[in-house]
Amino acid sequence: MKNIDHLISLYLDDELSLGQKCHFVEKVHHDVKFYNNAVEFLQQEKMLHTVLRQKAPLDKPVNVLQSKITRMSGWVMAAVLILALSFIGGTYVQKTQQIASLNQESDIYRRFVIQQKETDQVEIVGSFTHWEKIPLVRSGKEGYWEVTLKLPSGEHRYSFVINGNQYRPDPTVLDREMDDFGFSNSILQI
């Protein structure tokens, strides 16, 4: 029988044609081995995504020119480079500024994590949620809860809410301040 396991990768990568989608769904329903394979690959893919996403996203713009200059061996090299660039006509600078401006206006995804064992509910409230509670989801078996939110650049204040009424600042963020209600909020600068 023809091996069609590659359909699983096409499924994972959103590359299935309509006909292949029909074939895939039928196989998943009627072929236990194929189903088990698909589940294993899905779990592996989740792990792969987690590993690749562990690194912080591109959230801080880098001035390409500045970073190159500072790496040169001295002021003379920097001066020569600046002089040379000024002759080029500024096209490169202009494009760099355009890319940098895109970074500045883009929102940033931020993952919030807290460990709370033997807890039924963890939420987050903050300036970026307009102080509305947003639930975190349980992650793994070690009592971790997490949520990823899209935040605009700037300064934000927030707190975790345990079981609906216990306010707790983010233990991984040192900057905190008391609000008017006596709760301690974490301060996050993006």
């Binding site: 792990m47 987690t50 590993v51 562990q54 912080a56 993952r111 919030f112 994590v113 460990q115 971790y144 983010d170 991984t172 963020v173």
Partner: peptide, 12 residues
């Protein structure tokens, strides 16, 4: 990220 120090995953 602060949470990167917070979570150490063997599976990674």
């Amino acid at each position: 990220n602060e949470e990167d120090r917070f979570i150490v995953r063997e599976e990674s």
